[in-house]
Design a protein around this nucleic acid. Structure first.
Lengths: 99, 99
DNA sequence: TTTTGACTTGTCAATATTTGTCTAATTTAA
DNA sequence: TTAAATTAGACAAATATTGACAAGTCAAAA
């Protein structure tokens, strides 16, 4: 599930209108609509504001958002698995350096 | 190993000078220097030109480059593993849709 | 020590991208 | 049909990226 689908589902579950949530986030309704539909990428501060407006866990939402951005980057690549393995390796090296 | 470290090692193995490679890539020596040191991010076309200049496999180099960009995005996050799992899930869903 | 060559750094204008909003559709629900 | 909700398109403003230049460091040769 993409970030947009995720937050739309949450919003609908809570029976909130786009304009209600958007207003709490201090952004235009149209922009939130685009974010939900995936034609615009939310900024980090917007995700945080969204977590508050939807009364959801901020970190969880940020994780979904970040994952979405990564998927966006690599979805059209032809060696996704290989790339993700490289990422994992490099992350491991990075964290080991702090020991 | 970061993308910059990687290509610097390759260049040194082949005993090429920054200016030789940069010239083949039609960019300034200073820019290539920054790319190798990780203070600048190469563009896709530059990675491709680099693969030619270094006589390396283009796709392999692009994978290292892409992995590097992803690491850059998430290295400071506190739930990296969780994020990468979400990525994997979502990628799986995406590819299953094409069946 | 001076010079030379390789590399690095800081800065800048040009360019490109992203951002948020407005207005005008379009869709939905009553 | 109407009214409210949502979406699409276009735009200026803000931000970010780009590549180049000039000046810098550094090590080794002269």
């Amino acid at each position: 599930m993409t970030f947009g689908e995720h937050i739309r589902k949450l919003r609908e579950q809570k029976q909130l209108l786009l304009r209600e949530v958007a207003s709490q986030m201090h952004i235009d309704t149209a922009l939130l609509s685009k974010i939900e539909r995936g034609t615009r990428i939310a900024r980090k501060e917007q995700v945080e504001a969204l977590a508050i407006a939807l009364n959801e866990n901020k970190n969880d939402l940020l994780n979904v958002w970040m994952a979405d951005k990564i998927v966006d980057m690599i979805k059209d690549e032809n060696s996704i698995t290989e790339i993700l393995n490289l990422v994992k390796e490099n992350i491991k090296k990075l964290t080991n350096q702090n020991e």
